[in-house]
Amino acid sequence: MSTILVIDDSPTVVMHFSGILQGAGYDVATAANGQEGINQIDAGLKPSIILTDLNMPDMDGVAFIKAARRTATTRFTPIIVLSSDTDGRRRDAARAAGASGWLTKPPQPSQLLAVVKQLAPK
């Protein structure tokens, strides 16, 4: 069973995404910011995909991606940035940090699942 790590400081968004992913049969782990995400990975979580927001307190998405890329378990894990940010520089920063893809928030449930299915077949 694939586990997907969803990182977002908005409980609404976390709940929404978790609902969609769990509905499609994925296990979902959640974190409210990058630091919590890293803590979970350090604690042994091995996500098949990571979906992360960019703008978060404590550790933002770009910092998280950099940290995740320095961690053995998530060095090659697909990390999709989910953001409604329209600033191209943010996208570039995420990409430079090692993000695998970018999905404009909020995605249609079918979009989200399409991307996830493609990257992590159940």
């Binding site: 990409r95 993000a99 695998s100 893809g101 970018w102 999905l103 404009t104 995605p107 249609q108 979009q111 399409a114 991307v115 493609q118």
Partner: peptide
């Protein structure tokens, strides 16, 4: 996926 708003780097 070919919809707008998604990009695989």
């Amino acid at each position: 996926p070919e919809f707008e708003g998604f990009e695989i780097f």
